[in-house]
Structure formats: C-alpha cells, structure tokens
Design a protein around this nucleic acid. Structure first.
Length: 361
DNA sequence: GCGACAG
DNA sequence: ATCTTGTCGC
C-alpha cells in the first residue's frame, strides 16, 4: 500500500484543536507598524506599500494608509515620513498635507510640486519579523486539516453568524438559529468583544475568529448548536483555502459554510452549472468558482435582479453540501436567510449598544 | 488613469 | 465593515 500524499482538504490530519490555530499569538499589528515607523531616519521617507511589505504582505498597504491617517499621534511621531509610491506627499493625520510638507522640509527633504524624489530620500531597510508572512504560513497549514465531507443528514437546524462594529475597536457578533424547512428564526444570541486586528483582505479570520469563538461558546452553553453554520466570509474560496468560515469551523470543531458578497479570488466558470441543481428553484443561477484549477465554490444568483453571492465549504462540509444547504435556507432575499438574519441581528445589537452609550440611563 | 483585495 | 444625502422602488 502506498502512502497517501497529504494534499489540500485531505482527511488524514488529526482532530482539530486550538493548537492548530494559535489565537494566543495573533500579532499586535498596530504596534508592529509603530515600531517600523520609528525606524525611518530623520530626513528620509518611505511608502505605505514598503511598510506593508515590511509587515509581510503588500496587501496591507491600504490598512497602513488608513491607520496613519487616524492614529494616536503626538509631537515626536514620524508619520510625516510616509508618502505615496508616486512620491506624492499624500494625506496627513492633521488633515492638512501642508503640515506634512512643512515637517519634511524642516528635516531637509525637498518637496517640489507636492512630491518627494524617492530616488534621493527613500528608506526601505526595515528590520521586521514580518508578522503577516508568519500568518500566511499558518494559513498554508490550514487546508490539510479541513475535512471536506458531506453532512451526515439533511440539517434540521442551520446557524448563521455575522459581526458588526460598535466602534473601530469594539465588535458585536450575532448568532441566529434557523429551523428547516420552515426557515423561521427560532433563537438568537450575541456577544461583544474588543477587536484590535485590522481588516486586511486575506486575513479576515484573524480579525473575527476570537469573537466568533466567544459567540459559539455561548451557543454551546445554551445547548443550541446547529447542524451546520453559515458564516459571513468565505470558506475554502480563499487564496490559501483558509477563509474565516474554514478557520472558524476548524477552531470550533463544527460544520461551516462560507458566504461572501464579493469574489475574493478565482474566476466564475462561464458555463451555467446544471448538474448540482435538481432544478426546482426557478430563476436560480449557479456557476462554479475555480481557483488554481480547483473548484472552490459557487456563484449563486437568487433572482434575476440580484447580484450573485459566493458560497464555499468551510469545514466538515463539501462543495455539494454547501450548495444543497444553501438551497434549503434560500428565502426571497439576495443572501441565505441565516446570513441575512445574523446581519440584521448584529447590526441591531450594535445600534442598541451605541444608543445606550450615548444615553446611559 | 484605471482596476483592485471577503468583512 | 462604517460613514452618510439623496434617490428609487415596493
């Protein structure tokens, strides 16, 4: 007998545990960025993209820009030394680019026509542990631990989870329990938590996993664990097959299905896929999503005037199950009902908390 | 200048 | 995701 090579979604790995997802070591990205910032010498500049690269992924450039535009700032802060890759001075934390230009000139950086000559002034020799590169490597070990298997039976209870934000640092996660086949919302719960990891495309799980696990603990305590849970984020429809639905399913040890409103990666197969459809849902369009020559999910259009959504298996489900379960809970809305309900509940709870903070009595 | 990268 | 005026449609 020849050994089976461990491939993506292979079922040879041991049972999932929290050690496979070391949540205790999620890096403090804002702190890492602050440390990099201090390394830029007086009289030199760097770019948002170079800082992102030093953090371990150029994809974090947008967050670097957003963070520096509104961060804890003081007199000694060197954030004026970060400019756009074009050389344009760019935005400043004071909202006045002229302040940034003035500070640069004071330390000998020429600014002509709103631009810096990067070939003369740029600094890129950062010392960094590249925390995002480490997270990327962690993600690459996820797919081998996922179980792509069908559900044992038709689900009777389907869960949905979504996260809303009360502020930049505080989140609310809501869980809804939907009965099948009535599609009625039969129970819901929510939890609050501080969130410090930023949103960076491809790393959503590190932002939302802690609060999702806290939420699922509450679900367990109430003995309301569903047969499968829909998550507001992709499953294996991810550059490294490690979307938030997959990571959540793995960490919680529960079957999950991912739902995205935009296509994160891969391409929509031009051919309508008719085989998976036992066509009883009129006007339902389904097309395969292929990434790196692998089928990873489906684009589902519920109704002719709806934009499609993108469904993929997370953990303890497979492609076929993800689609069939979706059809079980597809109401008249654009999105599967567990996602629509969880979205509504988490927003409602976030609004309630905001109002309560303004009017404490 | 345009397109682009879940939430 | 959130912010946020007006606008469109059921």
């Amino acid at each position: 007998m020849t050994a089976t090579p461990p491939g993506p979604c292979d079922s040879s790995a041991a049972g999932a545990s929290l050690t496979t997802l070391p949540l205790h070591s999620i890096p403090d990205l804002p702190h890492a960025l602050q440390r990099l910032l201090k390394q830029i010498p007086r009289g030199r500049v760097t770019t948002y993209g170079e800082l992102a690269r030093a953090l371990g992924d150029i994809g974090a450039a947008r967050w670097v820009g957003e963070y520096l535009a509104a961060h804890p700032h003081d007199d000694g802060c060197p954030c004026h030394r970060v400019v756009r890759s074009t050389g344009d001075v760019g935005l400043y934390v004071t909202r006045h680019s002229a302040d940034k230009t003035e500070k640069l000139r004071q330390e000998g950086v020429n600014v002509a026509d709103g631009r810096v000559d990067l070939s003369r002034f740029s600094f890129n020799a950062f010392r960094s542990s590249a925390p995002l590169a480490a997270l990327c490597e962690l993600q690459q070990r996820i797919p081998g631990q996922l179980r792509m298997v069908p559900l044992q039976r038709t689900p009777q209870h389907v869960g949905g989870v979504d996260v809303s934000y009360v502020s930049r640092t505080e989140a609310v996660a809501a869980f809804v329990l939907v009965d099948v086949p009535s599609c009625q919302l039969v129970w819901s719960a929510s939890v609050r938590a501080d969130v410090t990891f930023p949103y960076i495309s491809g790393y959503l799980s590190f932002r939302e996993l802690p609060i999702l696990l806290k939420l699922f603990e509450a679900v367990r305590s109430a003995d309301r664990v569903p047969d499968v849970t829909f998550v507001d984020g992709n499953g294996i429809l991810h550059p490294r097959r490690a979307g938030s639905a997959s990571c959540f399913g793995l960490a919680a040890g529960t079957p999950t299905i991912g739902v995205g409103k935009k296509l994160l990666c891969g391409r929509v197969d031009a051919n309508e896929c008719t085989e998976e459809l036992a066509d009883e849902c009129a006007g339902l369009h389904v097309q395969r999503i292929v990434h790196n020559d692998e089928p990873v999910g489906f684009a589902v259009q519920a109704g002719p005037k709806n934009r499609p959504f993108f469904v993929s298996p997370g953990h303890l489900t497979d492609l076929s199950t993800a689609l069939s379960a979706t059809r079980l809970v597809l109401g008249n809305r654009r999105l599967p009902l567990p996602i629509a309900f969880a979205d509504r509940e988490s927003r409602k709870e976030a609004q309630r908390i905001k109002a309560q903070k303004q009017q404490p009595r």
